[in-house]
Design a protein around this nucleic acid. Structure first.
Length: 605
RNA sequence: GCCCCCGUAGCUCAGUAGGAUAGAGCAUCGGUUUCCUAAACCGCAGGUCGCAGGUUCGACUCCUGCCGGGGGUACCA
């Protein structure tokens, strides 16, 4: 990572000042690097309140060390640092201020320089602004969505789908090879039930024209009937056995279910703009588990308990991990262990992320622990260990009023319905606000989907969210459509501006509170992207975009003393050029940011 | 019982590798359109950051205990 020249200069000057003001202490502590430029660089902060400047270095903790009151340390050091910053260091012209404020030393950057460089970086970088090379040569796997075959795609799947889709994009932006994996729930005893239901009440054997809702209907009917007639469950067990034994007729049915579901999932993903690099499923691992079980046995990790094959995790917090039920059938942990090892062989990934609800956190702890024990036992070299590269990216529930959603009872909120409603509402709004818009259908889709996606991204992963129609369908305030609207308005300005936008503008024209704030937020965008990746939390980017959009809208609607709008495009050519460089930059960053979240940015709406 | 997550304004949430007077949106009330898209902007109001201790120069943030909500706790996924 290239050093920020403003921070570099500030930390260099501070280091120099500490040495000058406290020569003995500096010499004494120098060995521990406490006041080295590098140390200070790493410990600089950004004041939350922009009025305090761009960077800050708190000195409280050094008062005791230096035998001086923190406020005095700040005063003395700031004075020397200011003098040094003006005349020496690698970039003697980048700081304008170096002031003590209580126990902080605050630095203000040379605005014109920072503004000029930021605009230049955005305008020349465009879609690459905020990207980096940190992930070069590394692969990150992101497993997300992972719906169950033959079940409806409900809002319960919203978060994993949207979070994972965004994380895949964020890692890609940072130079990683990122592989989106859709690990379908295409195996398990519920297929026995489906098969029985299909054979008993299904319409035809071809599957032509059948939809997922037909399958769900059968599934619901099965559960109703099974209450009366317990023998159905036995037949279902038999049917699943047939599937496991690769009975051709039953396998054929299973493939039919899979095809029906996949076609429908694909339609939803395409509509939402969700992408995958590898669509796989549990069944894919069927023939791979045996070897893994043998490997675990060979490593001496397995034992029999109550007829089941288990791995004792030697951890009082975790129950043993079941590999095989007493009847010999494998379990999902077996499949996940196998899948993780398989993915390592195939990708040699830097990290493997599992975007799965927090209810499964014990499950992933178990899976990762088994792999860790295996690797320890086999003395796998540290750089080839998989366990520590695997991460469960957990998230809270999507709750729906008082009701818990249950496929069996058939009461789920379908993602389809949510999106359709959102798109319809968007269409109504367009007709009301911009009836002349040419691409109403496409724009309504972008906005409706945007509202739904953003509703999941504007909240921290781990919090439970309530699914409230009014909130998901809200297009005002901190929402996706708000960002999209701001983007559209920026595009409108660009259309209305006859000149070419270039970074070579008089940045001093942007030296007002509101513009400065916009520029700082533009400059901080790359950091927001990195934060998002580091915490596996797209929400950081969403929040940053809301701030940026808000800051820009303030500029856009600012009024002068007479109450007249201070227009972006005016008679003053130089001023307009400078403002339009800002406009174009904000448009690029909001557009890029929305792309990282998986939202489209409309030109008009 | 044990383990994990959450608890911030009336509501929904930011702020979490400790840092300066705790920020938004929604809702309420008031204002802004002869002016680049009012899906916007401005203003008023709204707080014992669940409670109690502890660590620290400094705690919404870290530690401990408690309260409240959610989840998990071997043959479902």
């Amino acid at each position: 990572m290239e050093k920020d020249k403003f921070k570099e200069q500030f930390s260099g000057s501070l280091s120099f000042a500490f040495q000058k003001v406290y020569p003995e202490k500096y010499a004494e502590l120098g060995r521990q690097q406490v006041f080295s430029a590098d140390f200070i660089y790493e410990n600089l902060e950004k004041p939350r309140d922009p009025a305090h400047g761009r960077f800050a270095f708190p000195v409280f903790r050094y008062g005791k060390l230096l035998g001086d009151k923190p406020t005095d340390v700040a005063l003395k050091v700031a004075r020397e640092a200011a003098a040094h910053a003006r005349s020496s260091g690698p970039h003697p012209d980048v700081l304008t201020d170096c002031i003590a404020a209580g126990g902080f030393i605050n630095a203000r950057t040379n605005f014109e320089m920072e503004a000029g460089e930021t605009l230049d970086a955005v305008l020349t970088g465009r879609s690459t602004y905020g990207s980096s090379q940190e992930g070069k040569g590394r692969t990150v796997l992101v497993e997300y969505s992972s719906p169950n075959i033959a079940k409806p795609f409900g809002v319960g799947h919203l978060r994993t789908t949207i979070l994972g889709n965004s994380l895949r994009r964020i890692f890609r932006k940072l130079g990683y090879e990122s592989v989106g994996i859709n690990y379908l729930g295409d195996w398990g005893t519920q297929f026995g039930k489906m098969i029985v239901a299909w054979q008993k009440w299904g319409r035809g054997k071809s599957g032509a024209g059948e939809t997922v809702s037909d399958l769900v209907e059968l599934y619901v009917k099965y559960h109703q009937e099974a209450e009366e007639d317990p023998s159905l469950d036995e037949r279902a067990r038999q049917a699943f056995k047939g599937l496991e034994d690769a009975d051709p007729e039953i396998t054929d049915l299973w493939e039919t279910f899979r095809d029906i579901s996949l076609a429908e999932f694909k339609r939803v993903y395409d509509f939402m703009g969700v992408e995958f690099d590898w669509i796989t499923g549990e069944a894919f691992l069927n023939d791979k588990m045996e070897a893994v079980i043998e490997r675990l046995e060979k490593a001496g990790l397995t034992s029999l308990s109550e007829g089941a094959l288990i791995v004792d995790l030697k951890d009082p917090q975790l129950p043993p991990c079941l590999l095989r039920k007493a009847d010999g059938a494998t379990l999902y942990a077996t499949r996940d262990i196998t899948g993780l090892l398989y993915r390592w062989d195939r990708y040699h990934f830097h990290e493997a992320l599992y975007v799965v609800a927090s209810a499964q956190s014990d499950h992933f702890k178990q899976v990762f622990k088994v792999v860790q024990l295996l690797e320890e036992s086999e003395q796998v070299p540290a750089e080839e260990r998989v366990a520590e590269r695997a991460r469960h990216i957990d998230f809270g529930w999507v709750k729906f009023g008082e009701k818990t959603m249950s496929t069996r009872r058939g009461n789920v909120v379908l993602l389809d319905d949510v999106i359709n409603q959102a798109v319809e509402l968007a269409r109504d709004k367009i007709r009301e606000k911009n009836p002349d818009l040419k691409s109403i259908d496409e724009t309504a889709r972008i906005i409706g989907v945007g509202a739904v996606l953003f509703s999941q991204l504007s909240v921290r992963r781990q919090k439970d969210v309530n699914f409230v129609w009014d909130e998901v369908l809200n297009f005002e305030g901190e929402t996706g459509p708000y960002l999209q609207y701001t983007h559209a308005r920026l595009c409108s300005l660009l259309r209305n501006y006859p000149e070419k936008v270039t970074p070579k503008v008089e940045v001093s024209k942007l030296d007002r509170e509101e513009e400065r704030r916009v520029i700082e937020l533009l400059a901080d965008f790359p950091e927001a992207v990195r934060d998002g990746a580091r915490n596996y939390e797209p929400n950081h980017i969403a929040t940053h975009l809301l701030r940026l959009a808000g800051a820009f809208n303030k500029v856009y609607q600012r009024k002068d003393e007479q109450g007249r709008i201070d227009k972006i495009i005016s008679q003053d050519g130089a001023l307009s050029a400078a403002r339009m460089a800002l406009v174009r930059s904000v448009q690029i960053v909001i557009g890029e940011g929305l792309d990282l979240l998986g939202l489209k940015a409309p030109q008009e709406m």
